[in-house]
Computed example of a mutant assay.
Amino acid sequence: MAMTAAPPRVVATEAALALIARLLARHGPLMFHQSGGCCDGSSPMCYARGELLLGEQDVYLGDIGGQPFHIGAAQYEYWKHTQIIIDAVPGRGGMFSLEGPEGMRFHSRSRLFDDAEWAALVAQQPACFQADQKL
């Protein structure tokens, strides 16, 4: 039986990709961080690349629209069994996020990885990270 390829941990909808392209044209390279609350709730935040200083507690999930996407370690523990789906919907973006003036905001959705996807994700991690990775 063939092993399922590990799915991306974060993906973007066509609407989100279109908004990312507009922001790239206006601001240059971007970065994303899934907020854990505080000022802007749990919105994914978009910054000019390097504007947000990342720390040891930030986890890189992958790229959306060619731009890096990170999440705080505590949030990652909560969301690690899910694929994060970044969408763009009408509304006001987070006060610190670059899409604010666009009349659109980034929005996070998620879906649980199925057993085969989860097994593929665990298999690609170093052994030291696999001990507590049961679904």
Rank of each mutant, 00 (worst) to 15 (best):
M1L: 07
M3K: 13
T4W: 02
P7H: 06
P7D: 03
P8F: 01
V11M: 04
A12V: 05
E14N: 02
A15F: 07
A16D: 04
L19I: 05
A21L: 00
A21P: 00
R22I: 00
R22Q: 00
L23V: 03
A25P: 00
H27Y: 13
P29Y: 06
P29H: 05
M31G: 12
F32S: 04
H33E: 06
G36M: 11
C38E: 14
C39S: 14
C39Y: 07
C39P: 01
S42D: 09
S43M: 14
S43I: 06
M45C: 11
C46W: 01
C46Q: 02
Y47E: 08
A48T: 14
R49C: 06
G50K: 09
L52P: 01
L52W: 12
L52G: 02
D58C: 05
V59H: 11
Y60V: 01
Y60M: 06
D63N: 12
G66I: 00
G66V: 00
Q67D: 07
P68E: 08
F69M: 07
H70R: 01
I71M: 14
I71L: 06
G72R: 12
A73K: 14
A73Y: 10
A74G: 01
Q75C: 08
Y76L: 02
Y78D: 01
W79E: 06
H81K: 15
H81I: 03
Q83V: 10
I85V: 15
D87E: 05
D87T: 05
P90C: 02
P90R: 04
G91K: 07
G93L: 10
G93E: 08
G94Q: 05
G94N: 05
G94R: 01
M95S: 13
S97Y: 07
L98K: 07
G100A: 14
P101G: 13
P101N: 09
E102F: 13
E102D: 14
G103M: 10
R109N: 12
R109M: 14
S110A: 11
S110E: 11
L112R: 15
D114L: 05
A120F: 11
A120M: 10
V122L: 08
Q124R: 15
Q124K: 15
F129S: 11
A131Y: 12
D132T: 15
Q133M: 15
K134F: 12
